[in-house]
């Protein structure tokens, strides 16, 4: 599919950057005339994906998280990648309420929220190489 515009940002896996990622994606999406509700859905999903990358991607190590965002007049596609430890069992990780960090009070709802607020969600991961989450949302412009 051809896209009209594209942006990419990269930042360290520090939790303070979760807000940065949301604002960057929301501002980019504001180029399209989307409803407040749609922008809020996208912000929530981005927040979940970026938080996963920051919390689980690197396990006490420092690393970069990349957020790419592209759109055309039919859909927005957002890709969130880390280059950390990867997920061994993606099906298990996607299961509602599953969390690998119960002590940190993660609710285990991250993937469920992404699935609910976006139209499609794809997770690619390889152990030791990192994880990429691709989310798409249909838009009416």
């Amino acid at each position: 599919m051809n896209y009209i515009n594209e942006m990419k940002i990269q930042f360290l896996n520090k939790s303070v950057n979760e807000g940065l990622a949301r604002v960057a994606v929301a501002s980019f999406c504001a180029q399209l005339d989307l409803t407040v509700e749609t922008v809020a859905d996208i912000k929530t999903a981005v927040s979940e994906a970026v938080t996963n990358a920051i919390v689980h991607g690197y396990e006490n190590m420092s690393g970069f998280v990349t957020v790419c965002c592209v759109y055309n007049l039919k859909e927005i596609e957002i890709t969130v990648s880390d280059y950390g430890r990867g997920i061994e069992d993606i099906d298990e990780a996607r299961r509602p309420l599953f969390t690998s960090s119960p002590d940190e009070e993660r609710s285990g709802m991250g993937f469920t929220v992404m699935e609910t607020f976006m139209d499609s969600l794809e997770v690619k991961s390889s152990v030791g190489m990192g994880t990429t989450v691709i989310m798409r949302k249909k838009v009416q412009v």
Binding site: E48, E105, R106, T112
Partner: peptide, 13 residues
Amino acid sequence: LFMDSSGIGVIMG
């Protein structure tokens, strides 16, 4: 103004 599942974690805890 905004909350994601981290807020759920806070309530749950």
